[in-house]
């Protein structure tokens, strides 16, 4: 089992968790502020599990590592090009519509992904997937309801949803584009063949968009020149890391 897949899954969860945490204290109402912060915490918890496992794999494969990897070093001391998260999760929060649409696209993806990952030959990955799936099931329910509420809501909420679709749809292609490490892990039975649940994901989006009376975007080719899963990120990730990693880089080893 290669550590790259574990890192990819960890990075996805960490970056979206961090993005959601930017809402803490700024949510539209207190209850939703708590809801989005809870989701952020769930995602950061998933990230920790994957990082711990990735660190273990990295340390095993290195002969006498001088400085062993830890969950903290992986989260706080890697450069932008070393992050393997997809571009969707690093997109800026925008307004509430954009944040919940990003969450909906990604939660639907994680929902089917973790269902498959539960069957992994790697018992650690399978266990993390099983634990995380309960959280993701709720994230999907919560974000689906918000997509419906805003899409089928007032003129303003609807126009904001349409704008969010315009801004985010192009990043959904990447979710289903295989990297070499995903392909390898899937063929060895550790990872997930992401093409398996592309139809399920499409169906889920269609179902929720129909209820929200939102148009389903016609399929566009991926016009984006970056490929986040292989470390080619937009400028947004650099900005996230600058803020997220500042403390550890300015005061190495600093603790609460």
């Amino acid at each position: 089992m290669n550590h790259q897949l574990a890192l990819h899954l960890a990075d996805n969860a960490l970056i979206l968790g961090h993005r959601n945490s930017e809402w803490t204290g700024h949510g539209p109402v207190l209850e939703q502020d708590i809801a989005i912060s809870n989701i952020a915490l769930d995602l950061i918890g998933q990230a920790r599990n994957f990082y711990q496992y990735a660190a273990q794999l990295i340390n095993q494969s290195t002969q006498q590592p001088n400085i062993p990897s830890t969950e903290d070093s992986l989260a706080y001391l890697r450069e932008s090009h070393e992050f393997k998260n997809c571009l969707l999760v690093e997109q800026p929060n925008g307004d509430w519509a954009k944040t919940i649409l990003r969450q909906f696209f990604f939660s639907a993806y994680q929902f089917y992904y973790y269902q498959e990952l539960q069957k992994s030959k790697d018992s650690t990955l399978a266990a993390i997937a099983e634990k995380s799936l309960k959280e993701v099931t709720y994230h999907l329910r919560w974000s689906s309801e918000w997509v419906i509420r805003l899409g089928d809501g007032t003129d303003e909420s609807r126009s904001r949803m349409l704008k969010a679709i315009d801004e985010l749809w192009m990043y959904t292609d990447e979710l289903f584009e295989n990297t070499s490490y995903e392909h390898k892990a899937a063929s060895e039975g550790f990872g997930v063949d992401i093409s398996l649940f592309k139809n399920d994901w499409d169906k889920k989006v269609k179902e929720v968009f129909e209820e929200a009376t939102l148009p389903i975007p016609t399929k566009e080719l991926n016009n984006v020149n970056w490929f986040g899963k292989e470390g080619k990120h937009s400028e947004h990730l650099g900005n996230i890391l600058a803020e997220m990693q500042f403390l550890q880089r300015a005061y190495p080893g600093c603790e609460w």
């Binding site: 109402v29 207190l30 209850e31 708590i34 809801a35 919560w142 309801e145």
Partner: peptide, 20 residues
Amino acid sequence: SLHAADAQMAIENARDVYTR
């Protein structure tokens, strides 16, 4: 007590606010 637009949202908010 908490604010919510409807019963469904009230249950979800209650889950987030009171059962963490």
